[in-house]
């Protein structure tokens, strides 16, 4: 049954996921190309100095891309479920409704992990060729909150989409914007390092919000 749910979500989101992954790889590739060009012009030593002294990480282009992908994936995955209240079909299946409510976002989160991993892999393969381990770590850790924001954006939009009433959707949207602000408070390199484990837990806890929307949907809440 779990495979069947993954199958359904895959059919729904595969084209978006393919495009999103290609887009993310393209942006990551472009950011790395700029690093390569800067190295050709100024030499790798200069980049090391800029990274250490000016906190530069050279992949700032990526800042809002994971968030956009997360939001887009949630819209592609959950908007069709709410059209004509199609979600009733999934909740009528002989499978625990709570598990179904958590399994659907779990499919999306797994897909996002794969999508985001391509960007990390590209950075993880390219950067160590020219930079010290500490500097590579700095880039990857600095980018981590942006990718967590992608997961958070996904879960928050899922929460908004699954909510059955428009009034509450608007309220959820305002709360979501405030929640997402947390991921972009400090633009400095490694600014979130000490906070990253908590930010990860905070992001994962957002998955519970879908349960609230689903309970309201099941109770037949209307505007």
């Amino acid at each position: 049954m779990i495979r069947a749910v993954f199958y359904k979500e895959w059919i729904k989101t595969r084209w978006f996921l393919l495009l999103a992954t290609l887009f993310l790889m393209g942006i990551t590739g472009y950011a790395l190309l700029r690093v390569s060009r800067a190295m050709a012009l100024h030499g790798v030593e200069h980049l090391w100095v800029v990274m250490v002294q000016k906190d530069a990480i050279f992949v700032d282009l990526l800042t809002y891309i994971p968030l956009m992908i997360g939001i887009g994936l949630a819209a592609v995955q959950f908007f069709p479920e709410m059209q004509n209240k199609r979600l009733k079909l999934a909740l009528h299946l002989p499978y625990s409704r709570q598990k179904m409510t958590l399994l659907m976002p779990a499919c999306g989160l797994s897909a996002l992990v794969c999508c985001f991993a391509t960007s990390y892999l590209m950075m993880g393969i390219y950067l160590p060729r020219y930079f010290a381990h500490e500097l590579v770590r700095r880039v990857l850790l600095s980018a981590a909150p942006w990718f967590l924001a992608g997961f958070a954006g996904y879960l928050l939009v899922a929460w908004i989409c699954l909510e059955p009433t428009w009034k509450r959707r608007v309220l959820n949207l305002i709360i979501a914007l405030l929640v997402l602000r947390v991921y972009f408070l400090a633009p400095g390199a490694e600014a979130y390092n000490g906070f990253l484990p908590w930010l990860t837990v905070y992001t994962l806890l957002l998955a519970c919000l879908s349960l609230i929307s689903m309970a309201r949907f099941k109770a037949g809440k209307q505007d």
Binding site: K8, I11, K12, P80, N84, K85, R86, K88, L89
Partner: peptide
Amino acid sequence: LEGHVQYQFM
């Protein structure tokens, strides 16, 4: 469901 709603993407 009303309107024969099913998974139209399949």
